[in-house]
Design a protein around this nucleic acid. Structure first.
Lengths: 157, 157
DNA sequence: TGAGGTAGTTTGCATATCTCCACCATATCA
DNA sequence: TGATATGGTGGAGATATGCAAACTACCTCA
C-alpha cells in the first residue's frame, strides 16, 4: 500500500482524516439520532424515522432505493412505508418507467413532522456552534451540502 | 422565544440549515455505518461497533458515559464491553476518583480494527470528494473537527 | 454512623429488525 | 413466445436491543 507520489500520499491522509471526522460526527450524533427516531411518531417504529429523514434529505424515490440507501432490508422498508402511508405521512405514485414499481414521497404533513423532529431534537446540538463565526458556519453548511449532493448518476433513470 | 434582531434570525436560519445538512449526511452514511457495524467483528453484535467507534473518536471513558453518548442502555453496553474485553479489543482500568467505576479504552488491536473498518468501508464514500480541491477538503476536516471537539479530558493519542 | 443514591453487572421479558422464503406482476432477454 | 430476473409485498422464525428490576460495591450527605 505504498503511495507513489507525495501528492497522492498527503491527499490520502486528508481523505482518511475526513473519514475519521465524519465517523466522529456520527458517533457524536448517534444518541440524538436514536432519540429522534424514537420520538418521531407514537404509532411508528424507530426505523420509520430513518426512512422519513432520508426522503426529507434526498427527495422521492422507489422503496428499494430507499432500503438500499438507509441500509434496511426491503421487507421492513415496505412494511414501514405502508404504515407511514396509512398515517398520511407519505404518498406514493406509480413509477413512470416500471409498472412494478412506485415512487414514495413525504406528504406535507410528513415533511413538517420530520422538520419539527429535526429542529426540536437538534437544539441540543446547536450549543456547539454558539461561538462560531457566521462565516465558518456558512462555509460548513456549504461544504456539507456539496458532500451530500450526489444523487444524479445513480439508477440511470 | 422569538428572536428579535435580524442578525439572530438569519443566524438561526443558518443553524437550521446546518442541522439539515448534518441530517442529510447521517442519512447518506447510514447504510455504510450499518454495514460497517455488521462487519466489525464476527463474534460481536453490530452495536459493539458503535461503542468502539465512539471510543476511537473520543477516547477512554466510563461505561455509563459511553452508553449515554451513543444512545444505548447500560445493560447492553455493559454486556458488549465485557465481550469486547474478553476478545482483547478493549482494556479497562479502575477509575481514579470513584472505585465503583472503571475506565474503558480501546486496546491497540481494537483501535487498529476500528481504523481498518473505517478505511475499508469508507472507500465507497471517497469517490464523493475525488474532484474536490485539497483546500476545500482540508477546510471541511478542520470545521468538522471543531464541531466534534467537545471533550476536555482527552488522552493524547 | 446510617440512609439513600449511583456505577456497573446480570437476568427476564418485550419488541424491533433481519433473514430467509414465497408470491404476484411486470420487465428483460433468448 | 418462453425463461429468467426484478420490484414490491407478506409471513415465520431468529437475533439484537431496549426496558425493568435486582444485586453488590461504593459514594454522599445529614
Amino acid at each position: 500500500m505504498q503511495t507513489t507520489s507525495p501528492g497522492d500520499e498527503s491527499r490520502h491522509k486528508i481523505e482518511l482524516a475526513l473519514g475519521e471526522r465524519i465517523s466522529a460526527l456520527i458517533s457524536a450524533t448517534r444518541a440524538l439520532s436514536e432519540r429522534s427516531a424514537a420520538h418521531f411518531h407514537p404509532h411508528l417504529q424507530p426505523a420509520a424515522f430513518h426512512i422519513a429523514r432520508w426522503l426529507y434529505a434526498f427527495g422521492p424515490a422507489r422503496p428499494s432505493e430507499v432500503a438500499e440507501a438507509v441500509g434496511m432490508d426491503r421487507s421492513s422498508t415496505s412494511s414501514l412505508i405502508g404504515k407511514m402511508r396509512s398515517l398520511g405521512l407519505l404518498d406514493s405514485s406509480p413509477a413512470l418507467d416500471d409498472r412494478r414499481s412506485i415512487i414514495v414521497r413525504l406528504s406535507p404533513e410528513g415533511r413538517q413532522r420530520v422538520a419539527a423532529t429535526l429542529e426540536e431534537r437538534g437544539k441540543e446540538f446547536y450549543t456547539r456552534t454558539q461561538d462560531w463565526s457566521t462565516a465558518d458556519l456558512t462555509r460548513l453548511v456549504e461544504l456539507l451540502g456539496r458532500l451530500t449532493a450526489e444523487r444524479s448518476s445513480e439508477t440511470g433513470s
